[in-house]
Structures are given as structure tokens and as C-alpha cells.
Write a protein that binds this DNA or RNA. Structure first.
Length: 770
DNA sequence: CTTGAACCTATTTTT
DNA sequence: TAGGTTCAAG
């Protein structure tokens, strides 16, 4: 079996030890996916039927990738492996079994916006103080309750939780949880957590011995990114595998150091528990410690940094790729300067090291940071792509359209109903809706069923009757026609199309295009005949379409034909990816680590793991940067450099950038490393000295801004001597680019690294001096 | 019931 | 800053 030759010793062990419980601890870049996929391929080669294998991942992308790579070894059989995200696999099982626990099989899946909206309306209904009852906080509280298998009843009885809520001035949280649950149920809806929780409930109650069916079906279970599983997910996994006569063929793969979703209930406790739970059953542990991705400077920096965390599984990640390039640190005065300097460096790397755009990534802690980088990359004419932010399916117009589709499939879907009952405007306003809501709350029936039972004005009654008739016609279409026929009918008849057509603003046209794109997507769904996964029947109904998109995110939209762009994304989003050159920006206290994490050691530890993830994305070049000041919420804020910067080994750091001289000493602002042994972290507040205000560069160059009179951009020509406020005197070496976008390459004799800079004349202020 | 203007509030987020 | 929500007047 040739694929086994592509593995190192430990990897091969992890692949061929197929029976019994296995834990694979896999460092970054250690070939984790390869092990997982080859293990599955190996199982199939040795005679296991693909559909007897269950492989759980966290992202659609990971699942897709896995199937692809299995396919390369075993061929199209790979498609019949039950490989998918926790949510999608469980949803698939629930579609079949939901009625056993009182849900319709065509249940709606609520995304977190829907969940929040439910919570908002409950808060309103209960007349609670909005200042203390923040939907985000409440949802996360409910979510973690579910993830810990705490039902509303248990929550009510749990004094500790209740006390926490009282302390946070939201004593009625348990009541909200209860109502929320009831409301989802009467809407025939499951939120993301329910897809897990209801499956657990199903297995726990075990009607018709449904659990046995799945235990027998799945002979082998594999879990990717095990460190990101929560208690609930592990409980379900145990249901599948941990019982009397089980062979316990389970393999989990994970890295405790890369656990960055604790804020969503993930717990590395699961890894520790796993070892304990399967101790008696001959658990085998394999550690993948060789990093095939990065150079030693990068790997050792990562090792050093993560060493500051408490509690971790012992492992030594190493690389045989040689030292490579040192890690760069860029110090900037402002966020704007940071943006420019990063763009400068990207340009330089492209020139000097011949990197392509696609080999470069800028990673930040928060999505809001992308703006400045966008600005400068655009100026420099470097193609880039921003990931994250609002996804296609979260756009208002798309959600509106989808809400109609959802309603046509499941009229119990209250969130969809509320969303569109008066959009486009049809005279069913707040007052009417309030009256209906009151009745709904009394009867505890789906809102849809209450529409006819409310005392209302003639006008309102008429409007509602029209609306109901319309939705019923949609329902008929959804049942009788394929998804595209139904959807395009609904788009027209609902009035959405007319509403959008009427708006001729740029945004309006954009919205129209988005709805059309959605319809195109439906069409593609109907026409697409590729088999996505096992036993997928050619169900082209609207219901089937909705099931398909509910669990898709942004990344489903097909890749741009042009892939030559610099990647901009949050560190979270970068997990699992790799780039030749990585810029980790905004390395400042209160930003990275985030201010929300500063209160607890656990919080800091998680941020550090996040930093670890960021570092280990880089193959050859790693650049860190921070700014002394940046705009936040429209206000200038001063931040100290991130504590994590002090944890980067000095000897692996390259002192660079024009800023060096203005700092004076070797590592200005950082206290001597020896006084900080990593255990005294808690009281770090005063550790970083405040000497970060650089003298104004212009002043230090001896130029008085008053004497500086910049010339018009068009006057600048190659060969001229010019003066720049920041960089001082320089010589224009060449000029590229068209009239409006002329870029000058200028050599500044007094600037340090890089002395040669490309400057967009349109924006630059240069004075000709000769 | 609809509209516009003041008002408020901000992490990360595989699903 | 930017966006969403809320509130008071049409």
C-alpha cells in the first residue's frame, strides 16, 4: 500500500492501528489531516464499508477536503463515508428521527441571528431591563448550558448558576431559557446547539432503540480538532462508541495548544477525559511532533510562547527546515502607519523574495482592523481579499428572501414569519403584531396558527388574510415544484423583487444582485447532479435546498477565478491554513490579548493559544507589528505593546524598521526578561514601561514642518532630489504607473530599512529640492 | 402605520 | 466610526 510510504513512523502507526481507542496529539503542521484521511482510506482498503465510517469535523471545508483526499486513495467510494461537520451529520440523522422527539422532520435550523431575535422578543415580552439582559450574553449563557447538558429545569434548580445570574443582575435568565426552548419547539426550529442537544436527547431517551441502529451502523468513529469539542459533543461521541460490547474503534485527533474556542464551550478537558475514559480499553496515544510547515525560528518561537501557558500536554514540536528568516517586529506610531508599513513590507517581500500575493496573509485579532490594510494595499495596487465579516447569508435582503422560503416549507417558523409579515410593507404594523404575540403567548401555539384568532380592525384583518393566502400559495409551490420554480415564484409574488427594483441607489442595486445571486444558487442546486454525500437522494425540493444552505457559511460560495490575492482574516479564521509569509498585526495590550480576556488567567491563556495559532500559520516569514495609538470607535486610543511580544525569544527577533533608532536601547519598553519568569503574570500591569512615545520623526530629521512646502504630485520626476517629512531627503529612482496612480521609487539616505521605498505620488507630500 | 432623527453600543465565532 | 434600534411626530 503505497500511501503508507508517504508517512513517517509515528504517522504510520497512527494510521495502521485501526482498532481500539486512539488519541493522536498533533502539533501544527504535523500532517494531521494526512493521518486522518489515510487512516480512513486504510480502513476502506482493509474492507470496511465507507458508510460504516463516521468522521466528524468542525467545518464544511475540512470535511470536503477530507473526502477529496480520501478519494485520491480509494476513488469515488470516498463519497459514501459519513464525513461532515458535527452539525450537518447530526442534522441528517435528526431529519430521519426528529418525530420521535416531537419535532417535525422538516424542522427549521435557526442561525444565531434568529436565536438572538427570539431572545430579544422574549425580553420584551417579559418586560425586562435591556441594560442587564443583553441578547448576546444570554444566548451564550443558554448555549453553554445546553453544551453542559443542563436543561431549563436543571438550570432553575442550579443554585450556582442562579447566583451567577443574580450577581449579573439578570435573575430571570432561567425563565428566558425556558421560554426560549419552548418557543423554538413550537416553531419547529432547532438552533445550532439543538442539532447536538436534541440528538443527545434522542439517544438518551432511545425510543424504538434508535441508538442501537446507529451504534451498529458506525463501526469506526473519527473526530478532527478534538480540542474544540464541548462536553455535549463528547457526550454524543461516547453514546456512539462507549457501551458494553463496543469495539471502541474511535480515533480522535487534536492539539490542546490550538484550542481557541473555549469561549464557546470547547474544553481541553475532553482530551484528558478521553485518556481516562478509554484507559481500560487499551488506548493508544500517538504524538505527531515533527512540523513540516515552518522553519526553526518560527517553530521555536511558537514553542517558547506556548510555554508560558499552564497545563498542557507535553510535546516537543520540532522542524528540520533550518533556522530560516528571523521574526520581524514592526513598531508603528499609529494604526495608519502600521497599515502602510505592512504594505511596504509586503511589497518588499514580493520584490526581494518573489512571493506571490497568495502566499501572504495579514492576520488580526478583530475584523474591524482590516480597514487600514485595505486602504494601503489598494494604494499599492496589491490584490487582496478579506474573509469574515458579514457573510452572504447574513445580509438583510438575503435573509428576507430566505425567510419567505423557510416559511413556505415550515409555517411554524416564527422568526421567518415575524421577519416577513410586514416586509414589504403591507399594513401589518407593530400594534397588530403585538396583539397577535399576546395571543400566541397565551395559547402557546405557533404564531401562524394564531393569526386568525385575534381581535383586530377590519383593515388589519384584511391585510392578514391576504398575507395568509399568499403564504399558502407559496406552500403549495414548495410542495409541488422544484426549489427553483418555487423560489422564483416566491421572489416575484412576495413583492421583494418590486421593492428592490424600486431602489436605484448603489446599495439598492447591490441588494437586488444579492437576491438574484441567491436565486442563481437555488438554480444551481436544482441543476447540480453531483452526489454530495452518501445516499443523497435527488431531492430538489425547496425543503431540501434549505436544509442544504442552513449549515453553510461564507466559504461555500465558489472560489474566485483569480486566486492571486493577499489574504486578510482574523486569527480564528486562519486556523488550519498556512502561508509562506504571515503578518500578525495589532500586537497590543487590550487588543491582542483582547480586553475581554484580561481578567482571568484562563482568558489570557486562550489568547496566547490564539497567538500560537497565528505564529504557526507561517512557513518562512513571520512579521509581528503593533501601533502605539489607534482609532477605536472613532476615538484615538493609546495602547502598550502586547505582553506576548516579550515572550518571543530575543535571539529569534530581527531588529528592524526605521523606528529602531528612535527607541534607543536594545529592546526598549520591555523590561529585562529575567525579572519575568512567566508566573508573575497576573500583576503585569506596571511591567511595561511607558516610554513608547517616539519623538516626532520630522523633528528628528531636522525638518521644520513650517518650512516644508510640498510640490504637486505631477511635478515629481525621476532623478529629482526630494524631501519627505518622515523619511527625509531622498532621490527619485524611477516612476511607474499611469497618470493618476504614479508610484515613485525613492531612495532615502537617512531612513533605515527599507531605505528604498515605493510611494504613491497621489498621496505623498514631497518637496523638490533639486 | 410609517418615517426620520436621535440614540446607543461595540471580540473572536468552524455551526 | 458605523450600524442597528428606538422613539416621537406625521
Amino acid at each position: 500500500m503505497s500511501y503508507l510510504d508517504e508517512l513517517n513512523d509515528v504517522q504510520r502507526q497512527a494510521v495502521t492501528n485501526t482498532d481500539g481507542p486512539v488519541l493522536v496529539v498533533a502539533g501544527p503542521g504535523s500532517g494531521k489531516t494526512r493521518v486522518l484521511t489515510y487512516r480512513i482510506a486504510h480502513l476502506i482498503e482493509k474492507g470496511t464499508a465507507p458508510w460504516e465510517i463516521l468522521a466528524l469535523t468542525f467545518t464544511n471545508k475540512a470535511a470536503r477536503e477530507m473526502k477529496e483526499r480520501i478519494g485520491k486513495v480509494v476513488g469515488p467510494r470516498a463519497n459514501r463515508v459519513w464525513a461532515g461537520t458535527f452539525h450537518s451529520i447530526f442534522a441528517r440523522i435528526l431529519r430521519v428521527e426528529a418525530e420521535k422527539i416531537g419535532y417535525p422532520s422538516n424542522f427549521t435550523i435557526y442561525d444565531s441571528d434568529d436565536s438572538k431575535s427570539v431572545i430579544r422578543s422574549i425580553i420584551q415580552e417579559m418586560n425586562l431591563n435591556k441594560d442587564h439582559y443583553n441578547p448576546n450574553a444570554i444566548l451564550s449563557r443558554i448555549s453553554s448550558a445546553k453544551s453542559s447538558l443542563i436543561t431549563p429545569k436543571l438550570y432553575e434548580k442550579d443554585e450556582e448558576l442562579r447566583e451567577q445570574d443574580r450577581m449579573a443582575k439578570r435573575p430571570h435568565l432561567h425563565a428566558i431559557y425556558k421560554k426560549y426552548t419552548a418557543r423554538c419547539k413550537r416553531s419547529g426550529a432547532m438552533d445550532f446547539d439543538d442539532l447536538l442537544y436534541r440528538l443527545y436527547e434522542l439517544f438518551q431517551k432511545n425510543p424504538d432503540n434508535v441508538l442501537d441502529k446507529y451504534r451498529e451502523k458506525f463501526k469506526y468513529v473519527l473526530v478532527d480538532e478534538f480540542q474544540d469539542t464541548n462536553h455535549l459533543q463528547y457526550s454524543i461521541i461516547r453514546k456512539f462508541i462507549q457501551y458494553d460490547k463496543s469495539d471502541r474503534n474511535i480515533c480522535v485527533v487534536g492539539d490542546d495548544a490550538q484550542s481557541i474556542y473555549a469561549f464557546r464551550g470547547a474544553t481541553i478537558q475532553n482530551i484528558l477525559d478521553f485518556e481516562k475514559d478509554f484507559e481500560k480499553h487499551g488506548i493508544k496515544v500517538f504524538k505527531l511532533e515533527q512540523n513540516y510547515r515552518s522553519t526553526e525560528h518560527i517553530v521555536q518561537t511558537a514553542n517558547e510562547v506556548i510555554g508560558y501557558n499552564r497545563r498542557q500536554i507535553k510535546k516537543t514540536i520540532w522542524s528540520d527546515k533550518g533556522d530560516g528568516h528571523k521574526i520581524k517586529l514592526i513598531k508603528a506610531m499609529t494604526d495608519g502607519e502600521e497599515g502602510q508599513r505592512i504594505a511596504d513590507n509586503i511589497l518588499e517581500q514580493k520584490n526581494r523574495h518573489h512571493l506571490r500575493n497568495s502566499e501572504i496573509a495579514i492576520l488580526y485579532r478583530t475584523n474591524a482592523q482590516s480597514r487600514v490594510f485595505e486602504e494601503y494595499l489598494r494604494r499599492y495596487n496589491i490584490a487582496y481579499k478579506i474573509f469574515g465579516g458579514l457573510s452572504f447569508y447574513q445580509r438583510k435582503e438575503v435573509k428576507d428572501m430566505v425567510a419567505y422560503l423557510r416559511l413556505a416549507v415550515n409555517t411554524m417558523d416564527e422568526e421567518a414569519l415575524r421577519r416577513v409579515i410586514n416586509y414589504p410593507k403591507r399594513g401589518i404594523g407593530k400594534t397588530t403584531l403585538d396583539k397577535i404575540s399576546t395571543v400566541t403567548a397565551q395559547l402557546d401555539k405557533p404564531l401562524w396558527e394564531c393569526l386568525g384568532r385575534v381581535q383586530l380592525s377590519k383593515r388589519a384583518l384584511g391585510a392578514i388574510a391576504d398575507f395568509v393566502a399568499m403564504i399558502k400559495s407559496f406552500q403549495k409551490k414548495a410542495e409541488g415544484e422544484n426549489a427553483y420554480e418555487a423560489a422564483s415564484y416566491i421572489a416575484k409574488r412576495s413583492g421583494i423583487m418590486d421593492e428592490l427594483k424600486a431602489d436605484n441607489s448603489v446599495e439598492g442595486i447591490n441588494r437586488m444582485e444579492n437576491v438574484n445571486a441567491l436565486l442563481d444558487g437555488v438554480k444551481a442546486f436544482v441543476e447540480d447532479d453531483t452526489v454530495i454525500d452518501t445516499e443523497t437522494i435527488a431531492d430538489k425540493s425547496l425543503a431540501s435546498y434549505l436544509q442544504n444552505i442552513a449549515l453553510l457559511t461564507d466559504l461555500d460560495t465558489k472560489e474566485d477565478e483569480n486566486t492571486e490575492y493577499v489574504t486578510l482574516m482574523s486569527v480564528h479564521a486562519a486556523k488550519g491554513l498556512e502561508f509562506k509569509s504571515v503578518f500578525v498585526v495589532g500586537m497590543e495590550e487590550k487588543l491582542f490579548p483582547s480586553f475581554m480576556s484580561l481578567e482571568s488567567q484562563d482568558g489570557i491563556d486562550e489568547e496566547r493559544r490564539l497567538f500560537y495559532v497565528a505564529i504557526t500559520r507561517a512557513e518562512q516569514f513571520l512579521t509581528l507589528s503593533y501601533a502605539n495609538s489607534r482609532y477605536r470607535y472613532g476615538q484615538m486610543r493609546y495602547n502598550e505593546p502586547s505582553r506576548f511580544l516579550q515572550e518571543v525569544p530575543l535571539e529569534r527577533l530581527e531588529e528592524i524598521s526605521g523606528a529602531r533608532s528612535s527607541f534607543g536601547s536594545n529592546r526598549p519598553g520591555f523590561m529585562d526578561r529575567s525579572t519575568d519568569n512567566g508566573n508573575s503574570n497576573g500583576s503585569s500591569g506596571a511591567r511595561v514601561s511607558g516610554n513608547f512615545k517616539k519623538p516626532d520623526r520630522a523633528v528628528s530629521l531636522g525638518i521644520d514642518p513650517k518650512d516644508f512646502k510640498p510640490n504637486a504630485p505631477t511635478e515629481i520626476q525621476a532623478g529629482m532630489k526630494v524631501l519627505h517629512l518622515k523619511f527625509g531627503e531622498g532621490k527619485v529612482l524611477s516612476i511607474d504607473g499611469g497618470s493618476a496612480n504614479r508610484i515613485a521609487t525613492i531612495f532615502f539616505k537617512n531612513a533605515s530599512d527599507p531605505q528604498q521605498r515605493k510611494i504613491m505620488l497621489k498621496f505623498a507630500k514631497l518637496q523638490i529640492i533639486g
